[in-house]
Write a protein that binds this DNA or RNA. Structure first.
Lengths: 254, 254
DNA sequence: CCATCTTTGTGCACACGTTCACAAAGACAT
DNA sequence: ATGTCTTTGTGAACGTGTGCACAAAGATGG
């Protein structure tokens, strides 16, 4: 604390690695838990264990933020909570709109992790007129027609899409046109956005498929599937039992 | 270059990169859509555009599976669908249990992307006795007491946890003890599992925080309360993502 | 059969991410 | 103060992922 004082732009210049950014929320969660237990300081080793990462990685991650630790002691929990929150932009209020209030949209609206992190559900939007006015998580659902107005009036810059895949691109376009520049997409489809707009996707089906891959490998790589299968015109085999809808609905249209 | 048998199965030996595995479901989705439109072949360029990735990356990814394309022509859609499905282990049936039938659990149970990919919801489990017997997505919810029996009787190896954070570790332990070796965790907590068990996590709050970070950066680091940001000329030289995709996996291996 | 054209498959270079291992910084006891 | 002990911060090695650019493979037309 003596020397460095606050200004320690170490690596802080303007480049925190993406991989590090993705872990900051993880650290923040662990630190918040410690804070609630009134733990004053924590070592990189302890915190790393709590966050489920390797301690060297954690120290390197923190080094991108600056030198906030004390050698021989560890990190001040409260201070670190503040620094990470600030770095992530959680010290400001982020109004969010959720579009597509099916099962998933409702789950998101009810999710406590939002409010506790500076995210505020500014509006719930659904295309189904039958949903309009119906309260979900205490917030009345609004019709899609209101989308642009809601975004503008609330200064929303983050939108969450939990519609069926077929509607996602259109919703995305409207959100972007209205001023949204970050989108969290739960619909199983690739979204095209103009430059400057960030999209992150969460695809439940993809996660399961990745697990299946590893599961299959564990179960004895060569067991199922019939081995090599000479080229031949594969034509059809029953394997393509793809339903008529593929993987379309992310949530029930309600 | 591995040794020996340099014939058909090129790099297929035993090492498909994780990053490639994570993209296979993406390709599969795009290919399935093409298949439904009866498109016979597709070039790496077209398919890459549909999947939202770079074509060189796609070709390299496919090269790990083997040489399944025809130069000057492209890839046979049906054949590739089969090969990727087989590689991912989707040609077999994967019974899945979902534990924690709140809003999110219900959304998952209703999610169409599961059934259409070889995943079958074998059971829904919830600790609340008031839920027992109540049908969700056409499947009656069973009480937690049934967890072990259900896993054993159905040969379930993949479990989905959508409980509150406080219950997740205990549920995880029971799933693992009963024989589950792959877990998809939606609870915002780090799960400890014995070696040999795969965990993938999806944390909605974390995704939003990552978006907030980039959003803050876009806003010039200036504290931007509300109001609409003028669509600044985002022509950043950052050479940002080409695709609409932040590219970081939505979840990370635990 | 030869020429030409298209598109794959991949060598290579580079960027990014992870981990090791250790010097330096500081706390603390004597 | 001095020495010892703990823990950070980071240089360097290593591993993984990405993208360019091009030779090779095969189609197609004459």
């Amino acid at each position: 604390m003596a020397t460095g004082r606050t200004h320690r732009p170490a690596n802080r210049s303007r480049g925190i690695p993406e991989a590090t950014v993705a872990r900051l929320p993880l650290y923040l969660r662990a630190l918040t838990a410690l804070s609630e237990r009134s733990v004053p300081t924590v070592s990189s080793e302890e915190l790393a264990a709590a966050a489920g990462v390797n301690s060297a990685k954690l120290r390197k991650d923190f080094s991108y933020l600056g030198s906030y630790g004390t050698r021989g002691v560890g990190y001040d929990v409260e201070y670190l909570v503040y620094q990470i929150s600030r770095e992530l932009g959680l010290t400001q209020d982020w109004p969010v709109v959720i579009v597509g209030i099916g099962n998933l949209g409702a789950a998101l609206a009810n999710y406590g992790g939002f409010a506790s992190r500076g995210f505020r559900v500014a509006a719930l939007i659904d295309a189904d007129p039958a949903m309009t006015g119906k309260p979900v998580a205490g917030i009345p659902v609004q019709h899609s027609d209101e989308l642009e107005r809601v975004v503008r009036e609330n200064g929303v810059s983050i939108g969450v899409i939990s519609t069926p895949a077929g509607a996602a691109q259109q919703v995305c376009d409207r959100l972007v046109a209205a001023g949204v520049t970050s989108i969290l997409n739960f619909a199983p489809t690739v979204l095209n956005v103009p430059e400057g707009v960030d999209v992150r996707k969460v695809d439940l089906s993809i996660e399961l498929q990745i697990l299946a891959f590893h599961e299959q490998r564990k179960a004895g790589g060569e067991a199922v599937g019939g081995g090599v299968l000479p080229q031949t015109t594969v034509g059809r085999d029953e394997s393509t039992d793809q339903g008529p809808d593929g993987d379309m609905p992310a949530v029930m249209p309600a």
